[in-house]
Amino acid sequence: MKNLSRIIIIDDDPINNMICKKVIKNDFKKLEVVSFEYPIEALDYIKAEYSFVNRDEPSILLLDLNMPIISGWQFLEEYSEFSDTIKNNFIIYILSSSISETDKARAAENKYVKGYIEKPFNSQTCKSMILNYKLQLVL
């Protein structure tokens, strides 16, 4: 796995998306940050961008849970249908305002979910998330 190339944010709340972008860009200027207010658009983007076999672009995906039309959980179901070629590129973190233990437990059970982040997304969280990624690379 190579160096982290991109962070994708999926949340229907534009304010949150703006906060995340600013926090990430503030610490990691080179990282590309993409955000989607509708999960469907995000799914289309992933399919379009990551379907190539040798595209080795590891990305972090920040996924909100409570969204209209398609919720975060429904997104994960759709995502699970993707080929491993696509899925191998992603590390998914749930980013939600929910502090419900049920949601946290459910997220922990999902094998595609790496971690659960409570809103608001801040610099500290961002750093530890990326440090975590890098540690994984070293080990």
Binding site: I15, N16, S97, S98, I99, E118, K119, P120
Partner: peptide
């Protein structure tokens, strides 16, 4: 659940923005 989420969302945004 919904109430907590919908109350928390603007609150967490305010915290985030303050940050």
């Amino acid at each position: 659940y919904i109430v907590s989420h919908n109350l928390r969302s603007p609150v967490s945004n305010i915290i985030g923005l303050k940050g």
